[in-house]
């Protein structure tokens, strides 16, 4: 069975939902970025409507895996390993 710890770095209202900047989440249901994000949302359900729409990550959420930008389909296909870091940036609209 897969079991790993993934560190999430959260920004703007994602951070407000978690009340902290960094969150370590145990992931056991799969090994893709998408699986890791689902484990995060299981812990913080309030984040789901901010981040997901129709079962998919909203297009305007920026994702970095270990500092590298991840796009579109890579979120469902790219694998993560124990100790990886995923940063999630919602866009912000204020001016």
């Amino acid at each position: 069975m897969i079991f790993m710890m993934i560190r999430f770095r959260l920004f703007a209202n994602f951070r407000e939902a978690a009340k902290q900047k960094d969150v370590d989440v145990a992931v056991s249901g799969g090994n893709t970025i998408s699986d890791a994000i689902k484990a995060l949302l299981a812990r913080y359900p309030a984040m789901e409507p901010m981040m997901f729409q129709d079962g998919r990550l909203k297009q305007y959420v920026n994702v970095l895996l270990n500092g590298q930008t991840v796009k579109g389909e890579q979120i469902a296909s790219m694998t993560v390993k124990d100790g990886d870091e995923i940063a999630l940036f919602p866009p912000v609209s204020g001016g």
Partner: peptide, 13 residues
Amino acid sequence: IFPKAPPKETFPV
């Protein structure tokens, strides 16, 4: 970069 607009909101700042 942002193909879909995030909602306008009264934001903290």
